[in-house]
Design a binder for these strands. Structure first.
Lengths: 337, 337
DNA sequence: ACTCGCCGTCGAAGCGCTTCGACAACCTAT
DNA sequence: ATAGGTTGTCGAAGCGCTTCGACGGCGAGT
């Protein structure tokens, strides 16, 4: 293992000079710099992360807490995680992967040990246990998701309220008067994960404004659960012509069931999904959808964090504006029969 | 930030004693240990990770390299990543998330900087650029996946050759004589990712032995690509009654298309999938499948790595035996018409 | 009673880096 | 020509921990 001292000796300068070449915190003459850089290359030197962290009390690591469960939005999580890792690397940071398993203790451990300089939390509950800890520490953090109380916190998320409103608007404009919402699994609502409820709020508020009837049903993923849910919906509101789906693993089953029942999409019923773009494009009917901008959220979160670490940056809530893309699954409501 | 020295002072012992309490590397009297432990708790002490790494030249971090692309098996990756993180934590290790982006440089950086004590690589190509580096370093590593040459490496993977064989066997035993394989996207084969080719080898070898006709077609995910692929298959081999699918995002489209064409599953055609259990269970027809044991692979990889770090453990290739679960998508071949 | 060995504890020496103050060398302005 | 400022480099002091050798005190063996 090559050390700074060895590089210094090889280049015929002092250790501190090498350090300054590396960090750029003091000016170094061009000739010296080149000599040092060449020695670094020749010796294949890599600064020791531990020593660096100890001396500078900066680890150059960002902690990313992902949820343990995989009952929803796995591809979204993955995309965010990858975007976070990539963006962080571009800023010279590495990413430490923590699962929700440890809960609040993970926050204590990370802040206490100096393992990471900052944290990104995903899957934030409305009243998350970790929030008081985040407020108490001076380590920067960014939430992906929105808790109930955001004071003193920085959050990035899709504007799910606007998303819900947008979906209703689209369907209402097409003449649909009876809309069913196929939501996440019941467990997601029980857990008080904000996004599901916020979408619902947006859906409800806007449909009230537009005079549209709305029926919301949570739904576990998979074909069987969807079949049950759909049956209940059509039983209760036979006139339903519009569907809003916020559950990746219910999308394809829904389409299959509608097909099976002889309800054509989009001629008889329209479907709008809230899902990653890939799902919308790959579905058996290309779906009109509001995309979940996973990558953008990840990138945003890291950029904010870096800004905070650099002393710029403030606490704020960034809600990304939803964009509805019209594809082949939505069209004018059929004339009332 | 509380330091070891402060804990020592608070407990009325020397710093080294506290250190030994923490590490258990020397015997400490019960009374002293308790006093120290109480001080630790009272002060909320967390050892500084950097200092620890520097002094012990062990970071207690495992690096996990995941692929950058998300064109396949995202849920599998995620499940592995989570299993790795959880298992690692149970052994007192944290996980550093690296994307494939940096390529071989990531390996150099990690080994050179002492950032991590060991690495787990996913998405290994048959002839991966990172392998020479792994062989050259004395840092333990485990691959999830199988390269062409495994000498000096430890690998964990599903036995995809056996998986292929198993799928053919199952269909052949049910009387199917014309089997079509719907594979991963062409890009996956071009990239020479081992598992796809190994599955194919297994499929081919066994169908030759059993006198079954086999037709393999790579297939991009999504409905449209699947429609095209299926049309070509049925055009070329109209008598096809068995399908083996190794492509998560082709599963549901295939089922939808078959249904649409009036081919009943499993009465007219049988489908066997190679996919995560969740996909098989949630599909519109509950799929006979060989599960991809993501969690087990992740756990295995970490356990091996820890064994190596502890001086136990050897280089070896662990191929997990595939298990075929019969569900509702496979049945006897229809009588020849 | 005395030695031997073991147990429990301590002090001190680093681990490899960053960073601060010092200082020599040079340049500029008077 | 000289005071004052800049620029580029160095030495040394830690950062908080681990770990080695040392050592006092105790019980066991003779």
């Amino acid at each position: 293992m090559v050390t700074l001292a060895e590089v210094a000796q090889h280049a015929g300068v002092s250790a501190s000079t090498v350090s300054y070449v590396l960090s750029g915190k003091r000016s170094i003459s061009a000739t010296t710099r080149q000599r040092v850089e060449q020695s670094i290359r020749q010796l294949g030197y890599h600064p020791n992360a531990g020593a660096r962290a100890l001396a500078s009390s900066r680890s150059n690591i960002i902690a990313l807490m992902i949820p343990l469960r995989t009952d929803m939005y796995v591809p979204v999580m993955m995309e965010i995680a990858i975007a976070v890792a990539t963006t962080a690397r571009a800023h010279g940071y590495d990413v430490l992967l923590l699962t929700g398993e440890e809960g609040p203790d993970a926050v204590r451990r990370v802040t206490g040990s100096g393992l990471a300089d900052a944290m990104i939390l995903m899957d934030v509950q409305l009243d998350d246990e970790r929030l008081p800890l985040l407020r108490a520490t001076d380590q920067p953090s960014v939430l992906i998701g929105l808790p109930a109380d955001t004071t003193g916190l920085t959050c990035v998320d899709l504007d799910f309220t606007a998303t819900g409103a947008l979906c209703v608007e689209h369907l209402a404009m097409l003449g649909h008067r009876d809309i069913a919402v196929i939501g996440e699994a019941p467990a997601v609502y029980e857990r008080h994960t904000g996004f599901a409820e916020r979408t619902l709020d947006g859906l409800r508020a806007r449909s009230r404004e537009l005079g549209v009837r709305l029926l919301h049903r949570p739904c576990d993923g998979g074909y069987d659960a969807m079949a049950l849910t759909l049956a209940r919906i059509l039983d209760e509101r036979p006139g339903t012509t519009g569907f809003v789906v916020q559950n990746e693993s219910a999308v394809e089953p829904l389409l299959a069931l509608l097909r099976q029942q002889g309800r054509a999409v989009p001629e008889d019923v329209s479907v709008v999904a809230v899902c990653p773009e890939q799902v919308a494009v790959q579905a058996s009917v290309r779906l009109t959808s509001v995309a979940i901008p996973a990558q953008e959220m990840g990138r945003h979160a890291v950029d904010h964090l870096i800004a905070k670490l650099d002393g710029r940056g403030t606490d704020e809530v960034v809600l990304l504006a939803p964009e509805l893309t019209v594809r082949a699954s939505s069209g004018p409501a059929p004339a009332a029969s």
